[in-house]
Design a protein around this nucleic acid. Structure first.
Lengths: 189, 189
DNA sequence: CCTCTAAAACCGACTGGACGGTACAAAAAC
DNA sequence: GTTTTTGTACCGTCCAGTCGGTTTTAGAGG
């Protein structure tokens, strides 16, 4: 059963995606959530707290799910587990409101961006570290960022099929250049 | 000599980059521009008009410069002129406030995003069309978007040198797969 | 099962300040 | 002297946050 707080956060995400951040008032959130302003402010002490709530929820969710999946892939001995996990998580959020809302809200002020800059740099380093060619690592990273970027700005989404194909190709290239593959190659010498 | 309107737009960009959109009031803009509220509102009829002004300026500037450069490269017979031009323009805007301000403002409401969605899809199609492999075309596109994304969100910028290296690599691969190259190869058969 | 009580959750009128926009005066430019 | 541009005081609206009140829930006692 979804908590009230989560129900409110959902409402915020929906509103932001449809109308942007300028019309995002507590009254509007309350109406969208089907409750009163008092109710919203009972669950979140201030508007700032509410916005932080939206961002933190997405960030922790993405973080946890990505690492969980990555761990599973590592156990299976697959190359580039974090890169694979990142792509997978992206696909799961592809039709959802969370990424767009995250971006729109973060743009409002530095304190909010800070909430997920860390995660981005963290994933960035992790992905780079599993690919031996640093340039290739960077490319993978930027491709993922690009995907989120286009989703956030509603720019011509390519079809799910095309994305799958693209991901496959990237993974194929990356796996050949993974640290793991390199070690194997060296062992073969 | 810079016009007053442009001077004001500069002030908006600066403010947005430092404090985000939430504290972006006409009073603040006036102070930053070193003039009074009346002066700002004389040049831009409303706040909305002001925000549109910022976005339109960047969009038209990027559009014109990209096409101009692309045309020049086409004359020189270089492969993938638009892709090259896009990278070049990105590099020129790399330390500037414009891209970040653009995204932050656009996130505020749909009407503002619309101002540059067209340009993005347009460039997207153009780049895709000059690369024979559609997946590769998409990848190039996403890499550029990713670069802007990271700049907009102040996420760990890789060094200029690293970016040059990355761009070179992408161009190398793309040029081999350009329509031009394909035609040459077919002619050789 | 019902009653009472207290806490938790929620409601909505109200307030105080901020902010967009207006009106008009003042100054500058031409 | 006329037009363009800028300054300033002001108005009306909007909106975050408060606060007293109401409903709902949970539990204890009978």
């Amino acid at each position: 059963m979804e908590t009230t707080a989560e129900h409110i956060l959902d409402a915020v995400e929906r509103l932001v995606c449809i109308e942007g951040t300028r019309k995002l008032t507590i009254d509007a959130v309350a109406a969208e959530a089907g409750m009163s302003k008092g109710g919203v402010l009972y669950n979140f002490r201030s508007k700032q707290e509410l916005l932080l709530g939206v961002i933190r929820r997405v960030v922790t969710e993405v973080r946890e799910r990505t690492y969980a999946l990555s761990d599973k892939l590592t156990e299976q001995g697959v190359a580039c587990p974090i890169l694979r996990a990142s792509f997978q998580i992206y696909k799961e959020y592809r039709e959802k409101t969370a990424p767009k809302a995250l971006f729109a809200l973060a743009a409002q002020e530095p304190e909010l961006v800070a909430e997920f800059q860390d995660m981005s740099t963290e994933f960035g380093r992790a992905i780079s570290s599993e690919i031996s060619d640093p340039v290739l690592g960077h490319m993978c990273l930027l491709i993922i960022d690009g995907l989120y970027y286009r989703q956030a700005l509603d720019i011509e989404h390519c079809s799910a099929g095309e994305i799958d194909e693209l991901i496959d190709r990237v993974l194929e290239i990356s796996s050949q250049n993974s640290r793991h593959a390199v070690l194997n190659a060296e062992a073969g010498n």
